[in-house]
Simulated scan of single mutants.
Amino acid sequence: MTGMTEHVQPLVMHVTGARPNFPKAAPVLAALADLPVRQLLVHTGQHYDERMSEVFFRQLGLPAPDVNLGVGSGPHGAQTAAIMVGLEELVLERRPDLVVVYGDVNSTVAAALVAAKLQIPLAHVEAGLRSFDLTMPEEINRLVTDRLADLLLVTSPDAIAHLGNEGVDPDRIHLVGNPMIDTLLRHLDELDVDSARTLVGLPPEEPYVVATLHRPGNVDDPADVAELVAAVHGVADQVRIVIPLHPRGRERLQAAGLLDHERVLAAEPLGYLEFLALVQGSVGVVTDSGGVQEETTVMGVPCLTLRPSTERPVTITHGTNRLVTRAQLPAVMAEVLSAGRAAPGTTPVPPLWDGQAGPRIAAVLARHLGL
């Protein structure tokens, strides 16, 4: 009709870049699809290997990214800067009404800095997690992103306390649950343990442990790597251990003799469904990853975390997780193997880890956008 202007729906820009982001973003994108908003999915290309990135989009039903910045790997400063350059240009061009970031990777903090400097409102999914270990690059990313965010979407009550202690306005904090658990619960019935065993070359019926190890504190220093390999071999003396080798640290671990033990089985990085199926069929997990601590909590799989601290203490108080040192690992694994896995449904699960975090997040974002 003449004289009337067409109402333009608000634009929400989602910034993802690394493997841990994708299962967190999928439920949010799906929930927002039912609302009168436009969505722009940006993949920075921080993880660019097929097994580390693109396979996740296929398996999680994520739409193909609208933009892929293709920054690739590199030192923290160079990678973060490259992401900022690409995002700044994109934000100036598209002028989103809201930028949504996920987790604690370099793409997250880069997007937070760009949004803040260009005065675009910012929502941080998985806000408030703290390890209190400033040697972790992820901890720096968390602190900076939360300081800049307008909406802090938290997965657990301890995160609310951390943000409160840092002086964050309570009105900006929203307990929404864990969207990564939405994705896990949605795909739980699709996990094919037998196919995953075959994929990595495990003999039928043999018990096994899964390990994921890539943190700088475990794989950067040669002395740490030597200790880690000795600890892994101590586990392998008791049970087969399968390790999908992350590109980070792969050469150092192999050079230190990781594969010299006959019961250590290396695998390439796996897709989302294949990895979770492998975890589902295991007798336990050894990890230094944050997300794996959460997934094992919901799946009821014993998890030993090779770190001095965790930003996810709720996985210890309401889950199956336990912090161990490298020296402790073989003995604690012996306890795990002796106890066996708990019966399904008998381990506690954190509040609101119920598969509905995506809709809760979408509701918070919609209110912010005035919908």
Rank of each mutant, 00 (worst) to 15 (best):
V15P: 04
T44G: 00
N321G: 08
T297D: 11
V71Y: 01
V85I: 15
I140A: 11
L152I: 09
I361C: 12
G217N: 11
G128F: 07
L306D: 07
A112T: 01
A116N: 08
V264P: 04
D220G: 00
L148M: 06
Q280A: 14
V67A: 10
G74S: 04
V168M: 10
Q328N: 05
R94E: 15
D260C: 00
G86C: 02
V209W: 04
A226Y: 04
G167S: 07
T296C: 14
T2E: 13
E139Y: 11
L278I: 05
P351N: 12
I173K: 09
A327T: 12
I181N: 05
A334C: 10
D354W: 09
R322A: 11
D66G: 15
H124W: 09
L245P: 01
V101Y: 04
A226R: 12
T297A: 14
M180P: 00
V144L: 12
R38A: 13
L273R: 15
V219Q: 01
D169T: 05
S131M: 07
R322E: 15
G345K: 08
V314P: 08
C303V: 04
P308I: 04
Q119L: 07
A366P: 09
P244D: 09
L92M: 13
M299E: 11
L152R: 11
Q238A: 06
R367G: 09
T5P: 12
G72I: 00
S107F: 03
P348L: 05
P222N: 04
P36Y: 13
L304T: 06
Q119S: 13
L202R: 03
A223F: 02
D224Y: 05
Y102F: 09
V55H: 01
R252H: 09
V91T: 13
L134K: 04
Y208S: 03
L69K: 03
G167V: 07
S107D: 05
T346G: 07
V105F: 03
M84V: 00
G355F: 12
D189N: 11
L184K: 02
Y102C: 02
S309Y: 14
M52V: 01
F22S: 00
P23T: 08
A112N: 08
L113F: 10
R130F: 10
L134S: 11
A196D: 11
L202T: 00
F57Q: 08
V144N: 01
V229F: 09
A33N: 14
R252M: 05
V99A: 09
D158Q: 13
K24M: 12
Q254Y: 06
L371E: 12
P348C: 08
E274L: 00
E139N: 00
